[in-house]
Write a protein that binds this DNA or RNA. Structure first.
Lengths: 210, 210
DNA sequence: TCTTATATAGCTGTTTACAGCTATATTTCA
DNA sequence: TGAAATATAGCTGTAAACAGCTATATAAGA
């Protein structure tokens, strides 16, 4: 083969996963598997002395976790592409990885084809997710477009308002000044673009905030 | 057969229906079909001289209609069981029949088994409906529990309130005095047992009034 | 027909909502 | 660390909501 195969490393605390991945990747013969590690502390020095094109990185690791390790990797070698490879499906973890520079997120139980596709996309500079992750992110986005508009406090107060609790009473219940509650009210009205409580509750209901 | 079969009469302005019913009932041999009439005026004198256990009664009849006839029948012979047998599916008609003492309501296109079942139930003193009628009644009840609580005007105003329209503005829109709108408001709040608009809109949403 | 329900209109207070500002301590996050 | 978001608190008006009444004409239902 004339073109050099991209160098690939695996960081995963499960030896079984490493073994399985190794065999699968060897079959495909598309990558040059240059190392596999069960923790970040071992990988860091390796990365400093060896050029690594792409890393399949688990999130749960002994010692430094995948999210921090990802950031570290991008610091040491910005050109190295990190692809999260994990079972964890929580948005927070996914988001953390992306914030820390990961180029995508593949579930461990995704089909091999999907993994290969994501690796290719990542190598081409795009950010990709396995289908299941995509769904999670889309759902999360939808929810964020709804719920994230309001803070916890605002949501708390909104619910009380919806129950018919008046501002002075809410202030009592939450041990706050009536001015504070009034300000939260104003902010809620603004955020949801409501003229008054009536419209506010209508909108809140439409958006499933209650 | 040792037990005397219940005497049954039919009042229906469609001869075809009478003929069909007669044949069906003869087959079953469960009833003693003692008379069939195409109008109430003929049936009343017959009822006065003959004991009739059960009457299958159409609603649409020439002259006196089924609803009035039902009341008349129960006046003359309270022990006679009246089973409405009609194609009409309007709640008002069904309710009128029941108010006037009918023991049930069977649609003409109901299966024969269903008709027989309803007759049996009615003879046992229960009130029964063919399935389709049951559905209509349940739906109507649900709607009554919801929408009927408010008058047209109140519903109209409630919707405007939900959109954030203030009382003075509603008064302008509907060419009413602000006092009138305020009174409607109060009535709506009372009817839905809401402390204020906030709770009002919540309740209205829960009950699908908007 | 006669009672009830609805729609209308009015008055008087008190309370709450809402708009418009300022301001500061604490959290969160890049 | 430093900027941004959040939560807190305050003041001042005006407008609206809400409670509590009365009252009358019309429409609908028993």
């Amino acid at each position: 083969m004339l073109l050099p195969k991209p160098s690939l490393a695996i960081v995963d605390d499960h030896p079984i996963v490493i073994e399985g991945l190794t065999k699968l990747l060897m079959k495909k013969e598309k990558f040059d598997l240059i190392g596999s590690f069960t923790n970040g502390e071992d990988f860091i020095p390796f990365l400093k002395t060896n050029p690594v094109k792409i890393v399949l990185l688990d999130i749960v690791l002994p010692g430094i976790d995948g999210m921090d390790l990802c950031k570290e990797i991008k610091n040491i070698s910005p050109s190295t592409i990190v692809l999260a490879f994990s079972n964890h499906q929580e948005r927070s973890g996914i988001m953390k990885m992306l914030e820390n520079g990961a180029s995508g997120y593949v579930l461990k139980d995704a089909p091999i084809d999907e993994l290969m596709l994501c690796i290719d996309e990542a190598l081409n500079g795009r950010i990709t997710f396995s289908r299941a992750i995509n769904d999670i992110l889309i759902q999360a986005q939808l929810k964020e477009n709804r719920l994230t508009k309001l803070t916890k406090r605002e949501t708390e107060i909104l619910k009380l308002i919806a129950e018919g609790t008046t501002t002075p009473h809410i202030a009592e219940l939450l041990f706050l000044s009536k001015f504070t509650v009034e300000n939260h009210r104003k902010n809620i009205l603004q955020k949801l673009k409501a003229k008054n409580v009536a419209e506010l509750i209508s909108i809140a209901n439409q958006q499933g905030l209650l």
